[in-house]
Design a protein around this nucleic acid. Structure first.
Lengths: 239, 239
DNA sequence: TTTCCACTCCCCAAAAATAGCGAGGCGTCA
DNA sequence: TGACGCCTCGCTATTTTTGGGGAGTGGAAA
């Protein structure tokens, strides 16, 4: 199996990449380095928008996207609820849809063993990095144990690169809110009504409204809910 | 500086830890390994609830929590908007509050150089791992460059451990929203009024209301704004 | 010094959201 | 088959939020 030294080289070449093609090339190196059949980086957007690179067949990728399989894919669902990398065997394949999905995947050349690592970025960004192969359970267990650190690192750097390449998906620069506006947005975000927020801040409800309005204006929001959503997704408030 | 071998040992002992004290002990080893003045793991929780471990003085930790400094701490705010680790020098210290905060931190023994790594878990969980020291810019740049991989790994494993130790702290397991509920929450989050959402989804406003209510119920939210905020911060919708 | 911004307070009328009921059809899973 | 969840539609009434005005303080920056 590859050495840490070689991984460093690959990560370095990954740093040079600045297009999706670059990521694709890096994927191939990574696969060779890890000596597995497939690796895949898969950016999952809840709007169903997707994006990724890896060594899965194009036919499978297209099929996956066109069928919106991320909705039923146990790998996606399972990783979404976890922080640590997971072996596919630990996932829930019990539903009918999941088993049908798995069969179809295998028909498209996906191996029976998989190990996937969830990665999360700002604004709820979510992606997976997967290593995939066909082998028996023991071989796979040895592989995952030995490469755990590497897989974590690879997932991190791939996602870092993906975020860099797709800046359209990252947030606009945030227009700072005043302290009172932050207070107001924060309390609204945790469910307080206007009256409660005003009481909490010891100001009149009329005053509070001015803050909400000015925050709404600064955030270019159409209403309070929108303003809170923008403040949240731009990291101006933390709930 | 330490070798990768030693880091592996520390990470292994980290794996054994199963209490906050264990994390605290691991922090000390990590500090020695990295040869910095301070390291800190800081779980930034909703509602200002906090949690962490590290080598900062108790006085500072208490002060930080009692003053809710995570609201103005440029490290928290900056990391919250980013994926990659950041040097404190790259952050925005321009506001008055931020500068006052920095001065106070230094008085409490925090070094002038810092390097922080954001980590995110399921349900919008968010934490920081920081290495901190007092030295000149060049020394620090060399340090951060050499230890980048290590810091990423440490942050990952510390957070994995923290999630394991404090499972109660993770917000309730995300009660998946139905597709229509997701639609409703998403459109509300981008500023549509109820009438507009209903029109967009081609359903009656009455029906829409059922979705909003059931989403609110599932999310344990007190009102629509709260529900949207929760859906956002748990990564159930993306705006 | 003047200008700007953050903070505070007030009124009123219209629009929107909420709470409480009700109903039926469709699909999946045990 | 029956339970359950999802999607769809209806009513009434109350509470809350919003949008449009205006007005004064104090501090910081230009």
């Amino acid at each position: 199996m590859g050495t840490t030294g070689r991984l460093d080289c690959i990560l370095e070449s990954l740093e040079q990449a600045n297009t999706l093609d670059g990521l694709q090339t890096a994927s191939l190196s990574l696969r060779d380095h890890l000596r597995v059949e497939h690796i895949a980086y898969h950016w999952v957007d809840s709007a169903g928008d997707q994006y990724g690179c890896g060594t899965y067949s194009l036919a499978w990728q297209e099929r996956y996207i066109s069928q919106n399989y991320q909705r039923i894919d146990p790998v996606v669902i399972g990783c979404f609820q976890r922080f640590h990398p997971v072996d596919w065997k630990q996932l829930d394949w019990s539903s009918k849809a999941a088993r049908a999905f798995q069969l179809e995947a295998i028909e498209h050349g996906i191996g029976n063993q998989g190990f996937s690592m969830p990665v999360r970025g700002p604004n709820g960004q979510f992606a997976l990095f997967t290593a995939n192969d066909s082998c028996d359970d023991n071989t796979w267990a040895t592989f995952t144990e030995r490469h755990r650190h590497e897989l974590v690192l690879i997932a991190h750097y791939l996602n870092e690169k993906a975020l860099e390449i797709e800046p359209g998906r990252t947030p606009e620069i945030a227009p700072a809110l005043s302290p009172r506006e932050v207070d107001a947005m924060t309390l609204l975000a945790i469910g307080y009504s206007r009256a409660q927020v005003a009481e909490q801040l010891s100001i009149s409800e009329h005053t509070l409204r001015v803050y909400i309005e000015s925050a709404r204006f600064k955030l270019g929001a159409l209403n309070t809910t929108h303003a809170v959503a923008r403040a949240l997704s731009r990291g101006l408030i933390v709930v």
